[in-house]
Design a protein around this nucleic acid. Structure first.
Lengths: 225, 225
DNA sequence: TAGATTGTTAATCGATTAACAATC
DNA sequence: TAGATTGTTAATCGATTAACAATC
């Protein structure tokens, strides 16, 4: 049965990179098979969930043994679209942008940032982590010539909407948005918001519960901005 | 009925910061009330979901009118624990760490990064965005003296486990982990993983579906690392 | 009043978890 | 063989969505 057409649930897609990372580590350590039980232990999940998730990639395990690491890696990469390099442009070469340019892990995630764009004339012409910083007026031409479909948006929130519009006008249809703003764009543009405040909200609400549990009073906020 | 004891669902907690941001914008624009319908439109959600979420904060809206913005902001902040400043130490003053140190938005999220730690002697003693970079040997003392409970971990993946152990040993029990590694720590330590690869996985799987839909073939990955 | 919006209660949907026969 | 692990099928759980009377 071909599962490649099956719809993979979003929560499963979010977990797959974690499996992939672990499997690669095990492979580097010389192992060839791994059980769902073992994966679950390492990642603090339930083994049945790991089996279900791996099932979504089309992998079939061997009872009593587990999953062969190499084909499982390939199956996960294929499911995520990480077997093909997605080339991307980065927008905004500030600290966050520089951090993203320097993150090697993207290569293993099928994302290749090939160049950066910035509106700051001081930055344009420089090279960051081996990638050129280009002026925005070259965007339109280069998107077409290099067949780029994905943009990583690391510009300040106030500039995000405007840059996003330029990017879409140039032909890009996938945006990984690090700016804390909702982008108003045509429906066929794929926007993945990477909203740090959502994660922070989970942390702080858990921590403040933890503080109460420990009988510690939190400091009052001096001046709410 | 006091809803402050009610358990707020995780998905709701994740959405609350988005409401908060919008409400503050509307407040800054001089508005005093807003309907769930309007919030839903702005954030691309369903109005019933907005009403349910705001209900979790204890807010009661007025039929035909909507929600008063000011008390709603207060209710959300209270639910998230953002009405009290959570002071935190940052670990790892590289590009990502610097980006996090410079992000003003945290102040509005009740998180105040008060200092950074780094193992690099070149960085120790410098000041980044007005925050001192300190050596790790001062950690233990300062955590106790300043009553710090939260750490933001922006160190390389290989160092994350070791730094996390030091941090926990010093008395911290909440960790916002930006390193792509599972931390093995005691159960009572709260770890919030900020895993970029999960978000990237959602983007790439949607994009590769989009590429197929548009009849575009993706470039094969030259050399899988 | 008429109509937009609310909170509540019930129905639906989707994901997680449990149970278990099959297997090497 | 005995026992660990698998995939499948069914049950549970939790969140989203729908329906609707109440309200200003």
């Amino acid at each position: 049965m071909d599962k490649s057409q099956t719809i993979v649930p979003f929560p499963t897609i979010r977990r797959l990179p974690g499996y992939l990372r672990l499997l690669r580590q095990c492979q580097a350590a010389g192992r060839t098979v791994i059980s769902a039980t073992h994966i679950a232990e390492e990642l603090a999940l339930e083994s049945i969930q790991v089996r279900k998730d791996l099932g979504c990639t089309g992998m079939i395990g061997k009872p009593r043994v587990g999953f062969e690491i190499e084909p499982t890696i390939a199956a996960i990469e294929s499911t995520l679209g990480w077997n093909c390099a997605t080339q991307a442009f980065l927008f905004g070469a500030g600290h966050l942008g520089t951090a993203l340019l320097g993150y090697d892990g993207f290569a293993r995630s099928g994302l290749k940032i090939v160049a950066a764009f910035d509106s700051d004339p001081q930055l344009v012409g420089t090279t960051i982590n081996g990638k050129q910083v280009l002026p925005l007026n070259r965007l339109h031409d280069l998107v077409r010539r290099m067949h780029i479909y994905v943009a990583v948006l690391a510009v300040p929130a106030v500039a995000a909407q405007q840059v996003a519009e330029q990017v879409v006008a140039a032909g890009i249809f996938g945006i990984w948005n690090f700016a804390p703003t909702m982008l108003a764009l045509p429906d066929d543009v794929i926007v993945q918001n990477e909203d740090l405040s959502a994660g922070l909200a989970l942390l702080t609400s858990r921590v403040s519960a933890g503080l109460k549990g420990r009988g510690i009073a939190a400091a009052a906020l001096p001046s709410p901005a």
